[in-house]
Amino acid sequence: MAAIPPLAAEPIFHISRLPVTNSYINSTLTLFGFIVFIIFLNAGIKKYYSKSRAPKGIVNFFEGVLEFMLGYFDQVTHDRKKSVKFLPVVGTLFLFILVSNWIGLLPGINSVIIHRGAETLPLFRPADTDLNLTLAMAVFAVAISHILGVATIGFFRYANRFIKLGDLYQAVKSLKPVNILTAIVEFFVGIIEIFSEIAKMVSLSLRLFGNIFAGEVLMTVLAGLIPYLVPLPFMALELLVGLIQAVVFTMLALVYLTMATTDTHGHAEIDGHSGHAEAEENQVPAV
């Protein structure tokens, strides 16, 4: 009987001081899988693009995937140029999360057991059931949104979103008490925004981790109760969850990127944007 997976991924062996966990093995295998795919893809690219022939097979497939993703990105960014600009970051997030989620459902994951003394450890564990990976991706996504934000609209304008000294100065200069009061309130709202950035990372990473981990626990429990046929519909649901979580993570990352790189003029627009983001944020956890 397979034991329920613990919250933390179990170390299988150590490379000097780095504990190589079963989740890390999975994420590295996924990476290698992608590299092999890229090698084949590039062979195809050489074959079809250099002679400007109509692409077939793997190149055509990947072009289709890109078109599909860009179509969805356009709904968020409303600008094909921006979608193409964000495609590498957001597309990598989507493909990596989706593929590692689906690889986690393959037979052999969680069922290949190695014995270490009395305890038994699964050799493979879905990559996204390790908070380290989801946190790494979330931190990366939010960090890149800030970097691109600063690069797009300038450091001081961007910093003014969080530490609203500029707005405060403008309000004091206008000498209207109402304006000054609003600016002071806005100043503290700006400081809260800094915490919301941390909340973004936490919510992104925990949402993905929690959903995929819960799926794993569910599969384990079901397989322990009735191992035949009954887990199948849940397996199908897990396929769906894997896709949905990949979409949710990706779309939120894209929303953050779009918001960070949109130059806002005046408070009304800033409020409009953050309100929009909150609405999205509130909708998504329900999934």
């Binding site: 992608f34 190149v59 590498p88 390790d130 380290n132 790494a136």
Partner: peptide, 29 residues
């Protein structure tokens, strides 16, 4: 299970994937 060494290792994995996909898949296509 958050461990900074694993966090960095996973970040590097993701970074490699991002670089590879960026350079040889997303940009040319």
């Amino acid at each position: 299970g958050v461990d900074w060494r694993l966090f960095v290792a996973q970040l590097i994995n993701f970074g490699i994937l991002l670089f590879v996909l960026w350079k040889w898949a997303f940009v040319p296509i």
